[in-house]
Amino acid sequence: MQPKYADIMEWVAVNIFDFYQNLNQFYGVLAECCTQQSCPAMAAGPALNYTWVNQDRKSVQLPAPTYIDYVMTWVQNLLDDDSVFPTKAGA
């Protein structure tokens, strides 16, 4: 729940950052079990495969560890971008 005197955008940003950190630690535990050989595709069951859109705007299927690495890197880049998540007071 948002604290009474907290700015809504700052509160959301802090919670997104915390969620990202927790997710990153959680994946660190699973990384030993999910290798390129054991998880050749990023999927949620037999009917749903996740794909990555490459620089040529083409959808490509990646092994799960590679897909997760790409997603986590993309999110980290957003978190590091001051135009998306400002770090200076009043921004």
Score class of each variant (00 low, 15 high):
Tyr20Pro: 05
Tyr20Arg: 12
Tyr20Gly: 04
Asn22Glu: 09
Asn22Thr: 10
Leu23Val: 06
Leu23Thr: 01
Asn24Gln: 08
Asn24Val: 07
Gln25Trp: 03
Phe26Val: 06
Tyr27Ala: 01
Tyr27Lys: 09
Val29Asp: 10
Leu30Ala: 09
Leu30Gln: 10
Ala31Glu: 08
Ala31Met: 15
Ala31Phe: 00
Glu32Trp: 13
Glu32Gln: 04
Glu32Ser: 14
Cys33Lys: 04
Cys33Ala: 12
Cys34Val: 11
Gln36Gly: 06
Gln37Asn: 13
Gln37Ser: 14
Gln37Phe: 05
Ser38Thr: 15
Ser38His: 09
Ser38Gly: 13
Cys39Ala: 01
Cys39Thr: 13
Pro40Val: 12
Pro40Asp: 00
Ala41Ile: 03
Ala41His: 07
Ala41Val: 06
Ala41Arg: 14
Ala43Glu: 05
Gly45His: 03
Ala47Asn: 06
Leu48Trp: 01
Leu48Asp: 09
Asn49His: 05
Tyr50Met: 13
Tyr50Gly: 03
Trp52Tyr: 15
Trp52His: 05
Val53Arg: 15
Asn54Met: 12
Asn54Ser: 02
Gln55Ala: 09
Gln55Tyr: 02
Gln55Gly: 07
Asp56Val: 04
Asp56Ile: 04
Asp56Pro: 13
Asp56His: 10
Asp56Thr: 09
Arg57His: 14
Arg57Thr: 02
Ser59Pro: 02
Ser59Arg: 15
Val60Lys: 12
Val60Asp: 03
Gln61Thr: 13
Leu62Asp: 08
Pro63Arg: 08
Pro63Ser: 08
Ala64Met: 15
Pro65Cys: 04
Pro65Thr: 02
Tyr67Ser: 01
Ile68Lys: 04
Asp69Gln: 13
Val71Asp: 01
Val71Met: 05
Val71Thr: 09
Val71Ile: 14
Val71Ser: 00
Met72Gly: 03
Met72Ser: 05
Trp74Tyr: 13
Trp74Arg: 11
Trp74Ala: 03
